[in-house]
């Protein structure tokens, strides 16, 4: 995997007020669960994305607390009800404190 933990997000560009849209998110991340052992038998320490949040105009729309049981390159798809044009903000938090972000605009008529 590339060294950057790149997020990719799919949000419809346009919607009608009151529509419920589907948002798909993906971030590249090994999601080291802490269960694997290296060749000497020592446990490889856990390092995962442990939290995801989607906000619209500063308000939380959807959040996920992520556990080591989630697959590598976490994929999350969810719904959002849109009433007006604005920006979605997506935030992923790593165990080591790193934060990865992405944002997407939507035009709502």
């Amino acid at each position: 995997m590339a060294s950057a933990n790149k997020p990719r997000v799919k949000v419809p560009k346009k919607a009608a007020a009151g529509d419920i849209i589907t948002i798909k998110t993906l971030i590249s991340h090994k999601m080291e669960s802490g269960q694997r052992k290296d060749k000497d038998g020592a446990a490889i320490p856990r390092k995962i994305i442990n939290h995801f949040k989607a906000e619209f105009a500063g308000q939380t729309v959807f959040e996920t607390v992520i556990e080591p049981g989630m697959s590598a390159n976490p994929f999350l798809s969810f719904s959002a009800k849109v009433q007006e044009s604005g920006d979605f903000q997506f935030t992923w938090t790593d165990d080591d404190g790193s934060v990865y972000e992405a944002s997407k605009s939507i035009t709502v008529s």
Partner: peptide, 9 residues
């Protein structure tokens, strides 16, 4: 604001 309580992973 989710609109619908569904999610996939």
């Amino acid at each position: 604001m989710s609109g619908r309580a569904n999610a996939s992973t």
